[in-house]
Amino acid sequence: MKIALNGRPLTDQTKAAIQALLGELARRGAEVQINDAYGQTLQEWGVMHPFTSLYTSRADLFDADFVFSIGGDGTLLETVTHVGERRLPIVGVNTGRLGFLATIKPEEIAQTLDWLENGNYSLDERVLLHVENDRDVFEGTNFGLNDFVVTKTDRSSMIVVHTWLDGEFLNSYWADGLVISTPTGSTGYCLSVGGPVVLPRTNNFIIAPISPHNLNVRPIVVNDSSRIEVRVESRSKNCLISLDSRSKVVDDSIRFTVRKEKFGAQLVKVKGDTFLETLRSKLNWGLDIRN
Rank of each mutant, 00 (worst) to 15 (best):
51 F>A: 10
144 G>M: 02
137 V>E: 10
127 V>D: 09
101 L>I: 10
269 K>R: 15
63 D>F: 07
33 Q>L: 05
72 G>A: 04
38 Y>I: 00
238 N>D: 12
141 T>L: 11
259 R>S: 06
127 V>N: 06
290 R>T: 01
34 I>N: 13
49 H>A: 15
24 E>W: 09
155 R>V: 03
172 S>N: 13
175 A>Y: 09
198 V>E: 07
217 V>G: 13
284 N>D: 09
20 A>F: 10
33 Q>D: 07
271 K>R: 06
249 V>L: 05
175 A>M: 11
89 P>Q: 09
86 R>L: 02
259 R>T: 06
157 S>Q: 14
215 L>S: 14
80 V>L: 07
53 S>H: 13
40 Q>D: 15
170 L>M: 13
195 G>D: 11
274 T>Y: 15
114 D>K: 08
236 S>L: 01
246 R>G: 00
281 S>T: 13
42 L>D: 13
280 R>T: 04
146 N>A: 00
93 V>L: 12
168 E>A: 12
35 N>Y: 13
145 L>Q: 05
57 S>M: 09
283 L>D: 10
44 E>N: 07
79 T>R: 03
162 H>A: 13
8 R>H: 15
208 A>N: 14
87 R>G: 11
9 P>F: 15
241 I>A: 04
97 R>E: 03
263 F>S: 08
276 L>R: 15
96 G>M: 01
76 L>N: 01
102 A>Q: 09
111 Q>P: 00
171 N>A: 10
123 L>N: 06
157 S>M: 13
274 T>Q: 11
145 L>T: 03
91 V>L: 15
105 K>W: 05
39 G>A: 14
209 P>Y: 04
79 T>A: 04
252 D>R: 11
55 Y>W: 14
72 G>D: 00
207 I>G: 10
116 L>D: 03
237 K>Y: 13
117 E>W: 14
143 F>Q: 05
67 V>Q: 08
269 K>D: 02
98 L>D: 04
33 Q>F: 08
155 R>F: 14
240 L>K: 15
25 L>P: 05
136 D>F: 01
242 S>I: 00
38 Y>T: 00
184 T>D: 09
128 L>C: 11
275 F>A: 08
270 V>N: 05
106 P>G: 12
210 I>G: 04
243 L>I: 03
213 H>N: 12
2 K>R: 12
211 S>H: 14
22 L>V: 00
45 W>Y: 05
84 G>C: 01
108 E>I: 00
74 G>M: 02
130 H>P: 02
226 S>E: 00
155 R>D: 12
186 S>V: 07
42 L>T: 04
5 L>Q: 06
93 V>K: 11
243 L>V: 06
14 T>L: 05
212 P>H: 08
71 G>L: 05
86 R>F: 01
195 G>V: 10
169 F>Q: 13
8 R>Y: 15
243 L>E: 07
16 A>D: 14
84 G>S: 05
166 D>P: 03
165 L>F: 11
123 L>E: 12
144 G>Y: 02
180 I>Y: 06
239 C>V: 08
253 S>A: 08
191 L>K: 15
286 G>S: 04
6 N>F: 12
10 L>Q: 02
158 M>C: 14
152 K>C: 04
163 T>E: 05
185 G>H: 06
161 V>W: 02
131 V>G: 02
183 P>A: 09
73 D>A: 02
159 I>Y: 06
